[in-house]
Design a protein around this nucleic acid. Structure first.
Lengths: 173, 173
DNA sequence: GATAATTGTTATGGACCATATCAAATATCG
DNA sequence: CGATATTTGATATGGTCCATAACAATTATC
């Protein structure tokens, strides 16, 4: 096509040249039309996910836990005696990237690596007492501030339906 | 707490030492328990989003369009005569990061920057003929391969309900 | 007409993700 | 048994995405 680089006579029938620079000498900023974008599940899904994570971080500000860190603590608590590879892989985290994450949690005394006596290659992961306490507080914050807000926005039944459909996508897509 | 670094006598009442190294001399890999994680909306949301994007990329492999690029083309088509700042901001893309993205699309002759005659600072964005053709094909691929698969997984009614709830989260959360 | 604001751009750094590679330890098999 | 292959945690490295500061050109504002 090689569009001429200077919008000469607006040879394109040009949507509307009625809007000058700002917006025809006054008026609102004239919001864009999302169009089919608002029907694209991927687009809406991504935006919703960003909002949820953002809110999660706000709720957890006092504990300084990211969603990923929270998920690690939850999984280690639920599965004591597992090593790094097992925990990382079920969370979809690659082993190399899990190292720095654990370094962080361990430096904050939230969890600990224990050299296994059965297989001296592997590190068994456990929560420290502080880690258990922090996780308990985190759970309460998530329940009362985060998930509660979602319930109030969607309603209990809808929230559960949403969770079910997302699980289906996550597992069977 | 200062957990001893060598799991000596397994002083922790140690979940279960029944599983040796591999798994008690045989048996399945013994999958981990997700526990409360599968009830965390943020966690499931993120995983679903990754799956959807992954599938989107597969469907678009022949056109080499990422979700972000597709959204740009859709938005430019729907809103002709807008500049970079307007397109980028409604997509939540920061202007600096939008430059390389446009460089890419422009180098593939899918869209073009046209210096505005009204405000010679701004670049008006338009789709090239090739861009329009590619976008049309992309829409068909998304409809027939991507969204169709979601409909078949969730059902038409559920898919629409899902979209509605996600929009609510994205906009009102 | 001097000053402030806007647009596209560059440079840069951080967070996250992926691959190759390594040493130590273990498993496997001749 | 012993040689070879595999596994585990770790390091190094590169890519992508996201965020901020700064800049020149242009326009708005006073």
């Amino acid at each position: 096509m090689t569009v001429s680089k200077t919008a000469e006579k607006s040879s394109e029938k040009s949507g509307d040249a009625t809007r000058g620079r700002k917006d025809a000498a006054e008026g609102l900023p004239e919001a864009l039309q999302l169009g089919e974008l608002s029907e694209q599940l991927g687009y809406v899904l991504k935006r919703a996910q960003l909002k949820v994570f953002e809110n999660f971080l706000r709720c957890m500000a006092s504990l300084q836990l990211t969603p990923a860190q929270f998920s690690v603590l939850l999984l280690v608590e639920k599965n004591p005696g597992r090593n790094q590879t097992e925990i990382a892989s079920t969370l979809g985290i690659l082993r190399p990237n899990f190292v720095a994450m654990l370094d962080n949690l361990e430096s904050r005394d939230l969890c600990a690596r224990i050299r296994s006596t059965n297989d001296r290659r592997s590190h068994i992961l456990v929560l420290t007492d502080k880690g258990k306490a922090v996780l308990a507080r985190a759970k309460k914050l998530v329940a009362t501030k985060h998930e509660a807000r979602l319930n109030e926005l969607l309603g209990q039944a809808n929230r559960e339906a949403l969770l079910g459909m997302l699980s289906k996508i996550a597992n069977e897509f």
